[in-house]
């Protein structure tokens, strides 16, 4: 069999060019700059840079503070991903069953999707405000003194709550359309075989949802790692003190607040490698077990 080929060899290259240029300008070039400057210690104004070898990396390895931030980032990512997927799945399954007024429910559930992360963070910081926040008042009613910005665990709780709330609608939209694309015949056949709704969900519905769920898993991990920046920034009011922050936020505080470009570049390289490993792992380990129809 003859391989299909373009008569003009330059044509495919030309067609790919716009995308390649965009990737080169917005990813390869900055990524290279980050790797390069992570081996230097720079004067903020750019008057001089001295080569320090791997010093910026060994500093990170030695820093207990960096370890703490990494630990929180791991915890935060797992919890936010699990909760926002889990709650969205529950809502989607229930919304899928609603017959009357289905559109209204769905629209209401998707609404939050339109809120930008910094706005979500701002809403959160008002709701959880120590002096005037209604949620703080609610907790006080039950006898708990919620201290966002002061107590580490309370702040982490507020950040996770707002981040999960913000992400549920995206997951909900995808999971709902995933559910609705499961053929009715399959569901009916399952119904004849088994009366238990829970069994049917785990044996039939969930495996058929898996491609959607896998896609969402990646999206959610990326969201928790990176997109929550705006929420965190607003909630710690640009002044983290002893509050929990994620690795991305630390890149920002050291690089953009502290003007330590070398140290901050090293951190962003570490982050880049982590994400690379994570993606490889996800596709290697998970994709094998998922069957696309």
């Amino acid at each position: 069999m003859k391989r299909a080929a373009f008569s003009q060899p330059l044509m495919p290259v030309a067609l790919l060019m716009p995308q390649l240029i965009i990737i080169a300008v917005f990813f390869y070039w900055p990524a290279w700059e980050a790797v390069y400057s992570s081996f230097f210690l720079q004067d903020p104004f750019g008057f001089g840079a001295s080569y320090v070898g791997a010093d910026n990396y060994t500093r990170l390895a030695r820093s207990t503070e960096y370890g703490k931030v990494a630990g929180f980032t791991l915890f935060f990512t797992l919890v936010v991903t699990f909760l926002s997927l889990g709650i969205a799945l529950l809502l989607a399954v229930k919304a899928d069953k609603v017959i009357r007024g289905a559109k209204t429910y769905r629209t209401l559930l998707m609404w939050v999707y339109a809120v930008a992360p910094p706005v979500a963070g701002f809403l959160g910081s008002l709701l959880f405000n120590q002096n005037i926040g209604p949620i703080t008042d609610l907790f006080a009613f039950f006898g708990y003194d919620l201290q966002i910005g002061l107590n580490y665990n309370d702040t982490a709780f507020a950040m996770i709550t707002v981040s999960v709330w913000k992400q549920i609608p995206v997951n909900f939209i995808f999971l709902l359309s995933g559910l609705q694309s499961i053929p009715v015949s399959v569901r009916e056949a399952a119904l004849i075989d088994n009366q238990s709704g829970v069994r049917r969900f785990w044996d039939i519905t969930f495996p058929l949802l898996a491609p959607t769920a896998f896609f969402l898993l990646i999206i959610n991990i990326t969201y928790a790692l990176f997109d929550t920046f705006g929420i965190i920034d607003i909630m710690v009011k640009g002044n983290p003190a002893s509050n929990p922050i994620t690795l991305v936020y630390k890149v920002y505080t050291d690089g953009f607040r502290g003007n330590d470009l070398g140290g901050s570049s090293a951190q962003s390289v570490v982050l880049m490698v982590l994400v690379l490993l994570l993606t490889i792992m996800q596709f290697r380990m998970l994709e094998r077990r998922i069957h696309y129809t």
């Binding site: 002096n131 201290q147 910005g149």
Partner: peptide, 9 residues
Amino acid sequence: GFWGAGWDD
């Protein structure tokens, strides 16, 4: 009283 590092708090 101490309400963290925020000025307004």
